[in-house]
C-alpha cells in the first residue's frame, strides 16, 4: 500500500517537473524570439560616419558647411522624411542628431546642425561621459579638424557629434510592391 502511494506521488512529481521544465523553456524561447534584433547602435555609427565623411575632407571641414544656406540633408544625401519627419507626417520621430563646431577657445564657430526628437538627447547625455549608453542607440564623437576661416587663415576646430536612434522597425500587415 505504501509503495503504491509513493509511486503515485512520484508520478505526480514527475509530471510537475515536466510542466516546470516546459514552462521554463517556453518562457525563455518566447523572450528570445520576441526581443528585437537591436541594430540602433550600429545605425547611429553609420549615420555618424556618413556625416563626417560628408562634411570633412582630408582633415578639413569643407567650407560649404559655414555658408548660411547649407542643407545637410541634400548635401549628404540623407532622407529628411526619415531623420526629421514634419509634424503632419504620419511617421514617428526616431532620430536625434547634433553636430557642433567649437574653436580652440571653446566658443561655437557656427550654429549647431541638429534635428529630430530632442527628447533623446538628454537620455544619451547622462551617459556620454561614461561612454555607456542606455536602451537607446547613442553614438558620440569629438574630433579635431582644420578649417579655412573668412580671412583665409587656418584654424583648428573640434567637431562634436551626437547621434541617437530609437528606430526599431515594425511588423506590417500589408505587402508593398517593388
Amino acid at each position: 500500500m505504501n509503495k503504491r502511494g509513493s509511486e503515485k506521488i512520484m508520478s505526480v512529481v514527475f509530471i510537475l517537473y515536466l510542466i516546470l521544465i516546459g514552462a521554463g523553456v517556453i518562457i525563455l524561447v518566447a523572450q528570445y524570439v520576441n526581443s528585437p534584433v537591436d541594430v540602433r547602435q550600429l545605425e547611429t555609427k553609420i549615420l555618424q560616419t556618413n556625416f563626417m565623411e560628408c562634411i570633412t575632407e582630408n582633415g578639413y571641414v569643407i567650407s560649404d558647411v559655414f555658408s548660411d544656406d547649407f542643407n545637410l540633408y541634400t548635401y549628404c544625401h540623407l532622407n529628411k522624411d526619415i531623420l526629421n519627419p514634419s509634424s503632419d507626417d504620419k511617421r514617428e520621430d526616431y532620430f536625434w542628431f547634433n553636430i557642433s563646431f567649437f574653436n580652440e577657445s571653446g566658443s561655437m564657430v557656427r550654429n549647431s546642425l541638429s534635428a529630430g526628437n530632442s527628447m533623446y538627447q538628454s537620455d544619451c547625455d547622462v551617459n556620454v561621459g561614461k561612454k555607456s549608453f542606455s536602451s537607446l542607440g547613442c553614438s558620440y564623437k569629438n574630433e579635431s579638424y582644420l578649417f579655412v576661416n573668412k580671412t583665409g587663415g587656418l584654424e583648428r576646430i573640434r567637431v562634436a557629434t551626437l547621434v541617437v536612434s530609437e528606430n526599431t522597425g515594425k511588423r506590417s500587415a500589408v505587402t508593398k510592391n517593388v
Binding site: 532622407n79 529628411k80 522597425g169 515594425k170 511588423r171 506590417s172 500587415a173 500589408v174 505587402t175 508593398k176
Partner: peptide, 13 residues
Amino acid sequence: GQGGYSYCYFSDY
C-alpha cells in the same frame, strides 16, 4: 500571409 517586417533606411540615394 501578407504580414512581414518593415525597416526604413535614411539614405537618400
